[in-house]
């Protein structure tokens, strides 16, 4: 039954990865770019919450609510200052520019805060400690459940937003064909800026979850980016619900891998990701041909 319990914990872990990956998926879906600073932005979000908690002495949840508008503005500004320019310059430029941004954010965080690890677990109240034991050795933590429910709500809300609202329609139209969308009067610049603002806000939610479920430090970002990207790819790039499933698949792979050997957890996730890439892009056949 420990295996089943491990898989269940994987679902909770995966819901967290799905939240981290959501913003990455939005930006890829709308603009066809991958933001290599996505993980660092999530960690930045965690630090913004951390600062508010330290100075205002409020609970982590209230601090997160206060941090959210800050992150929305940050995402908007990021798009109009940096990403918009890089989009026009070819497919490699957004990667190069956001990789540079990633290094800048990590080291500015090192300067502003110490390299020490931090956690917001203590200021999130009883949520981080309570759990229930179910029949058959299954255990459900309150925090895991909250993350899972929030993840489903975020993806559901996003689905409704894209299907029902005017900005959502404009986003889908721009994603389909930006030039044609411009022709019917959609301002793609503003659509892109809103997409990035949303992506950054949801990344901050991911960073917040990271901070209350475990620990973070200024260089936690790249690992979060890799996990988020793996979730997006496993779920099928450009598919929103796919990203949720991809995150859960990644989480389950990691917790099952940990059953083999504690150090094998992350490795199992990487292997799942590489296998999905090989299967999807037909590299498998080439590898077989070379082996013969």
């Amino acid at each position: 039954m420990t295996l089943l319990n491990a898989a269940l914990q994987g679902v909770f872990l995966g819901a967290f990865y799905a939240v981290l990956a959501c913003g990455l998926s939005i930006m890829f879906g709308v603009m066809r770019i991958i933001n290599l600073a996505h993980g660092d932005i999530a960690v930045l979000g965690a630090y913004v919450v951390f600062v508010i908690v330290e100075h205002a002495g409020v609970s982590a949840f209230i601090a997160f609510a206060a941090a959210l508008p800050v992150m929305v503005v940050l995402g908007y500004v990021l798009q109009i200052t940096l990403l918009e320019r890089s989009l026009k310059a070819g497919i490699l430029t957004p990667l190069l520019a956001t990789f540079g941004l990633s290094i800048v954010i990590q080291n500015l965080l090192q300067l502003a805060f110490s390299p020490d690890v931090q956690s917001l677990g203590g200021s999130a109240g009883a949520l981080t400690t309570s759990s229930w034991q179910l029949a058959g050795g299954l255990s459900v933590s309150a925090l895991g459940l909250v993350v899972l429910v929030v993840a489903v709500l975020v993806f559901g809300a996003l689905q409704l937003f894209l299907a029902r609202t005017r900005i959502g329609w404009m986003m889908r139209a721009t994603a389909e064909d930006a030039d044609a969308a411009e022709l019917v009067g959609i301002n793609s610049r503003s659509v892109y800026a809103w997409a990035t603002a949303m992506a950054v806000a949801i990344a901050a939610l991911g960073g917040f979850f990271l901070a209350i479920r475990s620990v973070f430090d200024p260089v936690s970002g790249p690992t979060q980016l890799i996990f988020a990207f793996e979730a997006v790819v496993i779920g099928g790039m450009g598919s929103l619900w796919g990203t949720l499933l991809g995150g859960i698949a990644l989480g389950v792979a990691q917790t099952l891998g940990a059953q083999v050997h504690p150090q094998f957890a992350v490795m199992a996730g990487h292997l799942l990701f590489l296998i999905v890439l090989i299967v999807r892009f037909g590299g498998g056949r080439a590898v077989l041909r070379a082996a013969r």
């Binding site: 190069l96 290094i103 800048v104």
Partner: peptide, 13 residues
């Protein structure tokens, strides 16, 4: 490192 990252991004753009 902040300088390196910022310079790389600036050159790319």
């Amino acid at each position: 490192l902040v300088g390196l990252g910022a310079t790389a991004a600036l050159f790319a753009l």
